[in-house]
Amino acid sequence: MSADARTQILTRIRTALRQNGAVPMPPAALDRRMTAPPTAPLPAMEDDRVSRFIAKADANGIAVDHIASLQMLVPALARLLSETGLKADISVAPALADLDWPKDWQINFAAGRREEHLSVTFAAAGIAETGSLVFRSGAGSPATLNFLPDIHVIVLRTGDIAAYPEEVWDRFRAEGQGWPRAMNVIASPSRTADVGGIVVRPAHGPKAVHLFLLGSD
C-alpha cells in the first residue's frame, strides 16, 4: 500500500526529472552539498555580534540583563520575582539544578505544567542577525519550559552568540551530538494579530521573555 505509493511517487519523480537527456547529479555530490552545505548571501552586519544581538532582542520585546556568573542567577531571579509579585513556585531546566537554589522556593525540575508562571531555561546559542535564541531539547532542557510559562527566563552565555543561524548549525554539526528532538528558535514573546489585526501578547506562549546574558564575550 504505502510502500507501493512510495515506489510510484519516486518513479514518477525520476521520469519527470530524467527527460530530454537530463542527467542527475551524482549522489555523492548531493550528499556533500547536504552535509557541508554552502552558505547563501547573508545580510551585512555592521555592529559587533553582541551589540547587534542585544539591540535586536530588545527591539523584539525581550528584556536583556547581564550577570557575571551563574551564581548571580538566583539573586537576579529573586529580584525579578519580587518585582513581578510572583510566588516562588517555578520550573527550572534540570541543566540548572546544581545551582544554589533557596530551600523555600518550590521548584519543578522537569517538563512544563499546565499552569506555569515562570520558567528558567538555558539557551544553546544566540543569533545576532535576528536577536533570537536557540534551544536544544534534551534531558536537561525540556522544550515545554520554553512555551508554557507566562514569563520565560533564559540564560545564555555571551560567548554562544553567533552572527547568523548558519554559524549555529556549523557549531552543532562540529559538536557531533546529533540532532535533538526539538530545536526551538525563539525571537520574541508569543503574539497574534488574528483578531482585527490588533497585536495581542501573549497568544499561546509566554507573554514576557527575560534574558540574562552570562559573562562577557
Partner: peptide, 8 residues
C-alpha cells in the same frame, strides 16, 4: 517569526 521550531 517569533518561533521557528525544528522537530526531529
Amino acid at each position: 517569526t517569533a518561533y521557528t521550531t525544528f522537530m526531529t
